[in-house]
Design a binder for these strands. Structure first.
Lengths: 356, 356
DNA sequence: CTGAAAGCGCTTACAG
DNA sequence: CTGAAAGCGCTTACAG
């Protein structure tokens, strides 16, 4: 592969001049510029980003450590992160933690070894020593979706409290009183917050959230199935189940189906995180939608701000309820599919019905 | 961040010795080794992968350019690629082409600039000049899923011909005679092959595939919707529609639903590529499942073989039909979810019914 | 406007 | 077994 030396020789100038042309340095003669660009063209030369990084001490690369790529919510987040990063002139390297702290650690280490300019993390747990260390030693860093309390890093996330209140109101209105939740890992903020928000919303209706109605999941489908089986085996099973993410809702559907029961006739179901498939499940699933694209964008902007010496602030965007038929609403049909990424609503927490 | 010099100073040896310890070079005294490892520990030193890459001319990184991350099939492929790469000591950088040739080109260029050791590509089109160039100039490369004819690069893919035959047999058996297909882009091999296989299978039953029953899609949901609307508007609409990927099947479901019609009562539907959600759609969708994990694994192995100077051969694995209810089968219920990634069957093309 | 030279953080023959 | 030195491909003060 041609190097800058080859280009210099071909153009009859020094490598310094070639470098200047490549980096649009102003003080290069028109003549030199022309000869260099011609030589670059002839040789099909492309600068070696590795060498450039070593010299400039910047890789123009962002690391994104995500909890689980197979989760459509995170896939979409990753996509929007890459999009915004590209627009700002950065590449992104994705590390998939698969909800495993050890894997998360592996990726943080690898990314840091590669000297990425900044790190975007959706932590799987309380934070590995290496990650905490990176935060402390000044690696530009931003948390997305989930965060670690007590660590001084901006957080870009959405607030689902109002949407959870709307969901509980919706369930209450439909006559459901025994409401259960499939929680995420207590080690994650989203795992804890969604339970808290749910409990608080129930409280407003004078409803309790007994321990038996809090199932411990891990954000993976299998745990949703397991927890739901437990719920269905109770002497007094819940009338409605709220899954704290879309994969556990999938597992819940599996469990209900395996029992030969039906949603919403036998049990109501709702999920945190809306995804395109929820429009097409049997029945379509009522869900709380996050402004995923906007979260990804905001996270990248905050991180790049930090990298480039600007402030880079935390951002919280509202989530909103999307009502479908899985909680028992008496709606005959769902005529139009809901777009998976609706625009951010202007009002704090509008309840949107996918059936006009 | 501590450099190798700091470690050398701390341990009282030369950087050469530090490097030898780091790379487990045998000829280092026990004493030196101990002092170095202690110094590394104390300083929290991590070697700079950028510098190492520049020196050794290898990045231990694979590039993966994928047609569309939001497509669950490719997400799963990417996941298994990363898994296998990690097992072999490589990282992977994913570039999402979003089915856009210009984006594909952008990622290929970026990846090459970063001097990745090898490239895994699922081409979105006939191949950009830069990619073809990379293949010609000897960048280790392997095609996955899709490939470009005439380019001397190993191909790892699955063969869906037998499964498509099984699908047509299934549709025929259920009484369907007017069969249509939502095709992928003609610029992709999978786009062309699936139509060919379908046409060939129809021929075996004396059935034709008229032009009006070949809808041109682009592997994205919107095109599946558009094409299906066209089918439904025909004087003589098809009785069954075969979508060449899962996203277009999603779009087809949208279109049918928007018309106030139902699957399979009004029209049968089947898809290429099986995904976990197909178990839960209304109705569960009959699909052709690829051994996705195995494809990812095989692709990485072939690529690493090439990188490390071994041969690296093409691999073709069979796809298989998974029958559910979307084609009209008289099956009352689907008691157990189909695993999204079943083991590779030993027989060439077993028809698997998800309902025993 | 231009070039020679130093240096980014490593690895690795080479000599001892 | 060990170290001094060269060199990977760039960028960038510094001098002219």
């Amino acid at each position: 592969m041609a190097s800058i030396k080859d280009v210099a020789a071909e153009a009859g100038v020094s490598v310094a001049t070639v470098s200047r042309v490549l980096n649009q340095h102003p003080s290069v003669s028109q003549d030199a510029r022309l000869r260099v660009t011609a030589a670059v063209e002839r040789l099909g030369y492309r600068p070696n980003a590795v060498a450039r990084s070593l010299r400039t001490d910047q890789t123009r690369t962002l690391g994104l450590v995500i909890s689980d790529v197979m989760n459509p919510y995170f896939t979409e987040l990753a996509r929007s992160v890459e999009e915004e990063a590209r627009a700002l002139g950065y590449s992104v390297i994705i590390g998939n933690a698969d909800e495993r702290p050890d894997l998360q650690d592996h990726h943080v280490t690898t990314l840091l070894d590669r000297r990425i300019d900044g790190l975007l993390v959706s932590p799987t747990d309380g934070g590995s020593p290496r990650m905490l260390d990176a935060a402390r030693t000044g690696t530009p860093m931003v948390f997305v979706d989930r965060w670690i309390p007590g660590v001084d890093v901006p957080v870009v996330r959405s607030d689902g409290r109002a949407a959870v209140r709307d969901l509980v109101a919706h369930l209450y209105e439909l006559g459901h009183r025994r409401l259960a939740i499939i929680a995420g890992p207590a080690a994650t903020t989203t795992g804890r917050e969604r339970v808290d928000a749910f409990r608080e919303a129930l409280g407003a209706y004078g409803l309790a959230l007994p321990d038996a109605y809090i199932g411990q999941g891990d954000f993976q489908a299998a745990s949703g199935r397991r927890v739901t089986e437990g719920f269905l085996g109770l002497a007094e099973p819940p009338e409605a189940v709220f899954a704290a993410d879309n994969l556990m809702a999938l597992g819940a559907l599996d469990a209900v189906r395996a029992r030969g029961m039906r949603v919403p006739d036998d049990i109501a179901l709702a999920a945190f995180d809306d995804i395109p498939w929820f429009v097409h499940t049997g029945p379509p699933v009522t869900a709380i939608a996050q402004p995923t694209r906007e979260l990804g964008r905001a996270a990248v902007r905050a991180l790049v701000d930090r990298i480039e010496g600007r402030t880079g602030e935390s951002v919280t965007l509202p989530a909103r309820l999307v009502v479908r038929r899985s909680c028992g609403e008496a709606v005959p049909r769902d005529p139009l599919p809901t777009p998976s990424v609706p625009p951010v609503p202007s009002t704090p927490s509008p309840v949107r019905r996918s059936t006009p």
